[in-house]
Design a protein around this nucleic acid. Structure first.
Length: 415
RNA sequence: GCGGUCGUAGCUCAGCAGGUAGAGUACCAGAUUGUGGCUCUGGUUGUCGCGGGUUCGAGCCCCGUCGAUCGCCCCA
């Protein structure tokens, strides 16, 4: 037997209705905020990601599916959408058509990681990006959309953590102060944090190692190092969130993994997910357009993990399975009558009913059992005696009432 | 990439001192020779994750490997 590749999963029919539900929430809610869908290829030139996400991040370092194609070009299966979306916006000149772009996306992404619950090598994300505004109003619009989506999904128990990384300047000042502090305590830090102190000191704040936690607690806080512009931006974001009633928790140690973030960063967490407790996150990335060769263009966005959302819904026992896939089951008395079965099935399908006509040549009893199992509302019975009178029997499966109806009158039958 | 737990019918699981595999459910058929849902009766299904080793004999022991899961790392 051949199985799926490690870290990948089939989405079987029993799961698809829940996928359709979350996808429809994403699409409908995005529309409410006038966001339009953008779709980009599944793979890109490697530099799209290596130039944007950051060489010191794990995503670029060890998690990308990268290979040489037959033209010897380095190709990467997209590990996230933002960088590729920015590339697409620049390439198609979308940012020249209007001062604001509001885009959303749904699709598969790929990271070579150790699989775990809620972490797959092929996973799916929904996300949205607001491009063109440097103002806190854009950050808040994005947060409102994300928050609305979560509410519409039916998720009630979650936390929104927010923080600011400030401008390049204030981040640099803070970084220096943090490095100085961490260096003073270097001996007591975990090995990993010591090495991250060299490569990406901000990330030390994320550490869950017991050794680090007490040190991190006393570490300088970025909020104390914000310049005026950064502080104004962040204060306006929180003020606007308060005004519109979005609940949040300021988490000064929240540092998102990707290099391109600045100013507002945020994360949505749910306690039902275990170690991977984040089911969505995002932030502002004003420098990314320039990094990818476009004209500078401020932007802010978020992404959510669909598999993690489905895990939350499952834990909450929220499901959207169809009660029935079939409205009418056509029961055929014997195989000589199957010529009528298809004709009659089509009559009901033309009326918009979902119809199954037996294709197994099984006994009528077996066909009824099937109709019952599928929760069909009606069965239509085709049998010699009635067919000789040009009619069939229509049976209401719930009440067991049945009536003989002329085939020519079936079109008028109300189902 | 590192560590813990686990891997038996489609699904949920049992199995023991190492002696050639079982239950429930699902599915199929019959009881009811033109009619479902309840009940009863009967039936099908397994390379016991894969490969190797120990043994007269391994689902059970040993090694390796693959996969799942939990944690680390990182992130959605």
């Amino acid at each position: 037997m051949i199985n799926t590749v490690r870290g990948t999963k089939d989405i079987i029919p029993a799961m698809v209705s829940d996928w359709h539900f979350v996808e429809s929430v994403f699409r409908n809610t995005s529309k409410l905020y006038a966001y339009q869908e953008l779709r980009t290829p599944i793979f890109e030139k490697t530099e799209v990601f290596s130039r944007s996400i950051g060489d010191d991040t794990d995503i670029v370092n060890k998690e990308m599916y990268t290979f040489k194609d037959k033209g010897d070009e380095s190709i990467t299966l997209r590990p996230e959408q933002t960088a590729a979306l920015v590339r697409a916006v620049i390439q198609n000149g979308l940012d020249r058509e209007s001062s604001n772009l509001r885009l959303y996306y749904i699709g598969p992404y790929f990271r070579y990681e150790r699989p775990q619950k809620g972490r797959l090598r092929q996973f799916h994300q929904y996300g949205a990006e607001s491009i063109g505004s440097p103002n806190p109003e854009a950050d808040v619009e994005i947060l409102l959309l994300a928050n609305k989506v979560i509410k519409e999904l039916g998720i009630s128990d979650y936390k929104l953590l927010i923080n600011t990384l400030g401008t390049e300047n204030s981040r640099q000042n803070y970084k220096n102060a943090l490095i100085e502090y961490l260096n003073q305590n270097k001996e007591s830090l975990s090995e990993e944090s010591q090495s991250r102190l060299q490569t990406n000191p901000l990330r030390v704040l994320d550490s869950k190692s017991e050794k680090d936690i007490s040190i991190i607690e006393k570490a300088p806080v970025i909020l104390d190092y914000l310049d005026e512009e950064s502080a104004n931006h962040f204060n306006t974001v929180t003020k606007l969130l308060d005004a519109v009633g979005v609940k949040y928790v300021i988490q000064p140690k929240l540092v998102r993994g990707l290099d391109y973030y600045c100013h507002t960063v945020f994360e949505f967490q749910s306690s039902v997910l275990g170690a991977q407790d984040s089911f969505g996150g995002g932030g502002r990335y004003d420098g990314l357009f320039a990094q990818l060769g476009g004209k500078p263009n401020p932007a802010v966005g978020f992404a959510m993990g669909i598999e993690r959302i489905l895990l939350i819904l499952e834990a909450m026992k929220i499901t959207h399975k169809e009660e029935s896939e079939c409205d009418v089951y056509v029961v055929c008395g014997n195989k000589e009558l199957s010529i009528y079965a298809n004709q009659i099935a089509e009559i009901f399908r033309n009326k918009g009913a979902r119809v199954i006509s037996d294709i197994n040549r099984r006994s009528m009893k077996a066909q009824f059992k099937e109709a019952n199992r599928l929760n069909a509302r009606y069965s239509v019975i085709i049998a010699d005696e009635e067919v000789s009178r040009n009619s069939v029997i229509v049976k209401n499966m719930a009440s067991s009432e049945q009536q003989e109806i002329e085939i020519s009158k079936l079109e008028e039958f109300e189902i």
